[in-house]
C-alpha cells in the first residue's frame, strides 16, 4: 500500500500560518504525504484538492471561530465529487463564544466530520486517531450521509 495522502489547510479568512506549518511537519514526520493548501480556503478547495491527490484524509483548521460558518455543508462537497468516504478532521478554535466540547463536537459531526478537535493542541492524539481510522478503511461518517 502506498503512503496515505492528507490535504491540510486553513478555512475562511484566517491567515495564521504557524499552526498550519506545524501540522504539515507533524503529518510528514508521521509518514504521510501532505498537501498544504495554506490559508483562505473554502470547502470546495478542500474537496477539489482531495480529488486531485486522491486523498485519504483532510485536515481543516480554523482559529478565529469562522469554522461554523464555513463548514456546515462540508461533507456534501465531497459527496458531489464522488469521493464521499474521505476522512474529514477539523480542529482549532471552531466557534465564537463559549460552548462545551461536546456541543461543538456534535455540531461538526452533523457537518460530516469524523473527528473534531475544538480548542485542543493535541496533534499527537489526532495523528493516532488518523492511523486508527485509516486501519478501519474509510470514513464511518460517510455512510450516514
Amino acid at each position: 500500500m502506498s503512503v496515505a495522502r492528507v490535504v491540510i489547510g486553513v478555512i475562511g479568512d484566517d491567515i495564521h500560518v504557524v499552526g498550519n506549518r506545524i501540522i504539515q511537519l507533524a503529518l510528514s514526520e508521521a509518514g504521510f504525504e501532505v498537501f498544504n493548501l495554506l490559508t483562505r480556503n473554502r470547502p470546495e478547495h478542500f474537496a477539489q484538492a482531495a480529488l486531485e491527490v486522491n486523498a485519504d484524509a483532510v485536515f481543516v483548521s480554523s482559529l478565529n471561530g469562522e469554522g461554523e460558518f464555513w463548514c456546515s455543508d462540508f461533507r456534501s462537497h465531497f459527496v458531489a465529487l464522488g469521493i464521499p468516504s474521505v476522512l474529514l478532521y477539523v480542529g482549532g478554535n471552531l466557534v465564537v463564544g463559549r460552548r462545551s466540547q461536546e456541543d461543538v463536537a456534535r455540531l461538526f459531526a452533523q457537518f460530516g466530520f469524523d473527528r473534531v478537535y475544538h480548542q485542543s493542541a493535541d496533534i499527537d492524539g489526532a495523528i493516532a486517531d488518523l492511523l486508527e481510522d485509516l486501519s478501519h478503511g474509510h470514513s464511518e461518517r460517510a455512510r450516514a450521509h
Partner: peptide
Amino acid sequence: GGGIDCSDAAPFGE
C-alpha cells in the same frame, strides 16, 4: 490532465 503523479488514483482513472 489532472491529478498528481500517483498510481492509486481510482477516482481519476474512472
